[in-house]
Design a protein around this nucleic acid. Structure first.
Lengths: 207, 207
DNA sequence: TGTACATCAGTGAACGCGCGTTCACTGATGTAC
DNA sequence: TGTACATCAGTGAACGCGCGTTCACTGATGTAC
């Protein structure tokens, strides 16, 4: 049955949003189109009225995640007065609630491993997600802009992503908590110290 | 046809080693038992002479990875004189050759995302892999033992894992190189600075 | 040492199942007159 | 405004395929005498 004008676009957006959640929750490969369409309130047959393949949905969903998650976290951080914003962002990222809710969380932490195995067109979303985080840090704290600042920001992002991946991967609840806490403390301490400016990186590169 | 005594155990070990490579390369869910057994030089039917299910193999392969990778990297680092060992370990972990060869690399970086979705019995391997890395850092540099040292070690591990996951996930080759380089420089710089000792972590914990 | 038999690692066909994908069909909506 | 027709989002059966798993069978090896 034909749908009212504009509803097709809304349905399409709903499929993408549902996929963005299920992919982060269960993984891309482990998520079937049948269950996905049911979760979106549809039957599987209609999928190809909106996407030409699962691969296309994967790309669009990953792009959606890259474009929405970080900016939502930034918005919440910006409810705080300016000098506290970056700390609030770091605490929110490295929280146990983020760890326990991958379906609404950082795409790199939830899907970074799978993204590394995808073709280049999908890995562009990885670049986008990473750059969104870098831009967010720069927007929240001016010390993280400029070449040196961006280098520091990349280390902060790596630490946050790795702490989240590790905290989810380990079975030991105490260890999981310690990983998040130590990363939080370390990042916040480095921000507060007056000599937080990084010297220029060295040239040594080992293959 | 019956095999000579002891060969069954060797075959079993070969299947586990093959799985350990393919799981890290292609992901656990995306790796089929048929292709896996062929890669091990066998046909698929024999699989259940060695394992009661794919799940059992996954657990054994993840345990194998956790127990072998880090110690191999430590051994190579120990070829250097003692004060350089930790730096060599960090450079080896954060190298582009590690990035480009997940099949022989760190299990947390390659499978951390998938491990987070597995049942508790498999996530015990995540704990093991993480603890192996912590123990390796302590063995390579005494400043990383004891409660404060272990907290610092956890942050180093988180940064290494996150840098590797991110470097693999992004499509932009320059960004990927920068992520590894910045993480390397940051970790090595912090090691070299005389005030590398961390103060006790604060108590603040946000859910 | 030689023979007869039991063992069991490995083979390959077959199982049901869910996957991604295709397709004929439906029927409410939008459009033309 | 009312009628006739075209559109197309969504349905549900069906496709071939590879998945994890099972099983009857093979045949070289180990064991018993």
């Amino acid at each position: 049955m034909r749908k009212p004008a504009g509803e097709a676009a809304r349905t399409r957006a709903r499929i993408i949003a549902t996929a963005a959640g299920k992919f982060r929750q269960d993984g891309v490969v482990a998520t079937g189109l049948n269950g996905l369409m049911n979760a979106a309130g549809l039957t599987h047959g209609g999928f190809y009225k909106h996407f030409k393949s699962k691969d296309q949905l994967v790309e669009e969903a990953c792009g959606h995640i890259a474009r929405t998650v970080t900016s939502a976290m930034v918005e919440r951080a910006c409810e705080a007065p300016e000098p506290e914003r970056l700390a609030r962002f770091i605490r929110a990222y490295l929280s146990s609630s983020h760890r326990d809710h991958p379906e609404t969380g950082c795409g790199l932490a939830a899907l970074g491993g799978e993204m590394g195995r995808m073709q280049e067109s999908a890995r562009a979303c990885g670049t986008e997600a990473f750059n969104e985080l870098i831009a967010a840090l720069a927007a929240l704290d001016a010390r993280l802009s400029g070449p040196d600042g961006e280098a520091r920001a990349r280390v902060i992002v790596a630490t946050m992503v790795g702490a989240m991946v590790s905290a989810r991967a380990v079975g030991d609840a105490n260890l999981s908590r310690a990983i998040l806490k130590d990363a939080r403390d370390s990042l916040l301490r480095r921000l507060e110290s007056p000599d937080a400016r990084a010297p220029a990186g060295r040239q040594r590169e080992r293959g």
